[in-house]
Simulated assay, not measured.
Amino acid sequence: MTGTGTRPSRAVHEREITTPVALTLPDGRLNPDAVGWTRTPLVRTDGIGRGLLGRGRNKRWEYWAVTTPTHVVALVTSDIDYAGVHGIWLLDRRTGETISHDALALGLPRVALPGTLGEGPVRTRTRQVRIAIDEVDGGTRLRAVGARVRVDVVAHRPPGHESLGVVVPWSDRLFQYTVKDVARPASGTVVVDGVPHAVPTGESWAVLDHGRGRWPYDVAWCWGAGSGRTDGRVIGVQVGGRWTDGTGSTENALVVDGRLTKISEELTWSYDTADWMAPWRVTGETVDLTFEPFHLKESVTDLAVFASVTHQCFGTWHGRVRERSGAWVRVADVVGWAEDVHNRW
Rank of each mutant, 00 (worst) to 15 (best):
Gly258Ser: 09
Glu323Asn: 12
Val207Phe: 13
Glu298Pro: 00
Pro20His: 05
Ile235Asn: 01
Val168Met: 08
Gly326Thr: 10
Lys297Pro: 00
Thr178Phe: 09
Gly139Thr: 11
Gly258Phe: 07
Leu260Gly: 07
Val153Phe: 04
Val334Ile: 15
Asp275Gly: 12
Trp328Arg: 07
Arg173Asp: 13
Gly258Leu: 06
Arg212Gln: 12
Trp276Cys: 04
Arg57Asp: 08
Arg125Ile: 08
Gly232Trp: 05
Arg233Glu: 14
Thr189His: 06
Arg110Ser: 15
Gly146Val: 11
Leu164Lys: 03
Asn252Pro: 03
Pro41Gly: 10
Ala74Arg: 04
Arg130Glu: 15
Arg173Val: 14
Ser227Asn: 10
Asp102Val: 13
Gly115Leu: 07
Asp275Ser: 13
Asn252Phe: 04
Gly226Tyr: 02
Asp245Phe: 02
Ala198Asn: 02
Val190Cys: 04
Glu265Val: 04
Thr40Glu: 14
Gly118Val: 07
His318Met: 01
Gly138Tyr: 13
Gly228Met: 08
Val111Tyr: 01
Val341Tyr: 06
Glu292Leu: 11
Val21Arg: 06
Thr247Gly: 07
Ile235Ser: 06
Val191His: 03
Asp152Thr: 00
Asp79Ser: 13
Glu14Cys: 02
Thr67Asp: 10
Glu292Phe: 00
Pro41Lys: 05
Val309Thr: 14
Arg344Gln: 12
Ala338Asp: 11
Asn252Glu: 05
Val73Asp: 03
Trp37Thr: 06
Glu323Leu: 02
Ser204Gln: 10
Pro293Lys: 04
Ile48Cys: 05
Arg150Val: 02
Thr67Gln: 14
Asp209Ser: 08
Thr250Asp: 00
Thr268Tyr: 04
Arg123Tyr: 06
Gln312Arg: 13
Val153Leu: 05
Arg184Leu: 15
Asp333Ser: 12
Leu142Ala: 09
Thr18Pro: 01
Val287Ser: 00
Gly49Arg: 06
Gly165Pro: 09
Thr140Ala: 01
Gly36Glu: 09
Val154Ala: 04
Pro121Cys: 01
Trp89Tyr: 15
Ala274Gly: 14
Leu53Val: 14
Asp137Gln: 13
Gly160Thr: 12
Val191Asp: 02
Ser187Leu: 10
Ala65Phe: 09
Thr286Lys: 02
Pro8Phe: 03
Trp337Asn: 05
Thr230Ile: 08
Ile263Gly: 00
Arg322His: 05
Gly139Met: 09
Arg57Cys: 07
Asp288Gln: 12
Ala155Tyr: 08
Phe306Met: 10
Ala144Lys: 05
Trp243Cys: 01
Ser204Gly: 11
Arg93Pro: 03
Thr68Glu: 10
Gly56Phe: 14
Gly120Pro: 03
Leu117Thr: 08
Pro159Lys: 12
His101Trp: 02
Lys262His: 15
Leu117Ala: 11
Asp137Pro: 00
Leu113Arg: 01
Gly248Tyr: 03
Pro69Gln: 10
Trp223Gly: 08
Ala225Thr: 14
Thr273Tyr: 03
Glu285Pro: 00
Trp215Val: 13
Gly236Arg: 02
Ala183Lys: 04
Thr301Trp: 00
Pro109Gly: 04
Ala155Ile: 04
Val136Asn: 05
Leu254Ala: 03
Pro26Trp: 02
Ser308Met: 06
Asp102His: 03
Ala198Asp: 15
Asp137Gly: 14
Ala278Asn: 06
Gly51His: 07
Glu285Ala: 14
Val12Leu: 13
Thr6Lys: 06
His86Ala: 06
Thr124Ser: 09
Arg324Tyr: 04
Thr45Gly: 05
